[in-house]
Structure formats: C-alpha cells, structure tokens
Amino acid sequence: MSAPAPTAPPAATGTTVLQFTDVARQFPDGTVALEGVDLTIQRGEFVTVVGPSGCGKSTLLRIASGLDEASAGTATVDARRIGYVFQDATLLPWRSVQKNVELLAELHGMSKTATNQAALDAIELVGLRGHEKKLPRALSGGMKMRASLARSLTLDPDLFLFDEPFGALDEITRERLNDELIRLFVAKGFGALFITHSVSEAVYMSTRVLVMSGRPGHIVDSFEVPFGTDRTPELRFTPEFAKLAGEVSHALREGHS
C-alpha cells in the first residue's frame, strides 16, 4: 500500500515481473476460461497474446492485475506498480485530460506537485501537449487512448498490461500508436503483456508472441520475434515479417480447430 517514491530507480532489465505457473480459471457457472497457463515475463520483454474471441485473454490479464484470481496454479506478480490499459480509455468524463492523467497518481497518494509533474511528463510523452484542458468528449478515439496510456505512465510501472487497447481505432491511428508504444517501451524498459486480435500488430510490437487456443484457453505456441527494438513501419512489408506473421496465423488456426 505504501507508495514507493516515484524517483526510485527502475528494476533492471531481466527481472521477472510476472510468473504464471499452471494457472487455471473456472468461473462459478462452470465456464473454464483458462487451463494450464505457464507464462513468464521479464522487464524489457514485450509479450503479445493472440487467440480467438472468448478464449480467456482478458481473464489472463485480470488475473495478472489482481482484479481476478486463479482458481488453480499460482500467479506471481513482482512489480512495484502495474499499468493496465483497457480496451476503452475509461477516462472520467468530468475531468480534463490533465486531471484524468493525474488520477492514478492521486489514488496512490503522490504529493500534489509530484502528481502534477508526472502528469505533465506523461502528457508530453504521449504527444498530448496543448490538449491538457480538454474534456474527454472533445478528444478523438486515438487521443483518448493516448490519455489513457499517459494515465498509466504517471506510475512508471514495471509491468504494463494492455487489453486490445487499439482495437477500436482506425488502421492509421493504430499503426502510429504502435510506433509510439514501441518507443515508450524502449525508453522505459517495462515488461508488457499485450493482447490483440491482430496478428500483424502482435508481430510488429512484440519480442515474443504467444498463441492461445479456444476455450479453455491455454498457450499452444510461442514465437520469438527477432526484429530488435528499432522497428519502422516498413518492417511490415519485409518477407521476414510476412513469414513470421504467416506462421502465427497458421498456429492460430490450428489452435482454433
């Protein structure tokens, strides 16, 4: 509960921030959403999960965040703070961008000046400078997502969870946000667990892609992505990219049947 100082040096790359061992989740109504999930994420790793709709991807994130609990197996999180970006931006409509971005720092009991500074920095990082005073309803979908991202960034999390954050955006906005997120990831070095429906987005963003099967969801395949951190949109048109994306798609179809 006690809030660590925001200036504390981030843990080094390579520290394990999330570990799932044989995690299962059965809901009271009998639905088995997850079964036998093993997963380790370290700082500096960007892990993406793709899988058919309803296979338990959100459940996986909810367990990682502590919003839900595994019904079997162990889920260990070793992060000072967790960032969680939902599919909806979930901004509070009565708060300005600035105030929305300050919310989590406020909830964590940071001082007013630290909160304010953290928000300004985060707003700068996601490119929302000049929009601080706007209300959410005056923002485009992409800008809302940026604000939501900035809100989590104020906490300087070691573990970042993303639940299809760009799913509702148009392709151009989505690709731009992909690039910005990669830039943030390289700069901050957090560990990321990212969920998407898009194979192309998964391969483009990640250091590792996990493929989940249909319900009960478990991880059926894992692909290391060899492209390094310096990724540009042109990467999407290289044969290597197409080959890997093809393999992931294939695994997805296999797991689906």
Binding site: M1, S65, G66, L67, I82, Y84, F86, D88, T90, L92, L103, L104, E106, L107, H108
Partner: peptide, 20 residues
C-alpha cells in the same frame, strides 16, 4: 470499467465515493 480502475489502484470507500 471505472470501478475496476479504482479497484485496481486500491481506492478506499471514501475516495471512490468522492472521486467517482
């Protein structure tokens, strides 16, 4: 979703009432 955001960041009863 807003409730979950507050739960996630361990907001107390009063904070939740006043801020949300």
């Amino acid at each position: 979703g807003h409730h979950e955001l507050f739960t996630l960041h361990r907001a107390g009863r009063i904070t939740r009432l006043v801020k949300l």
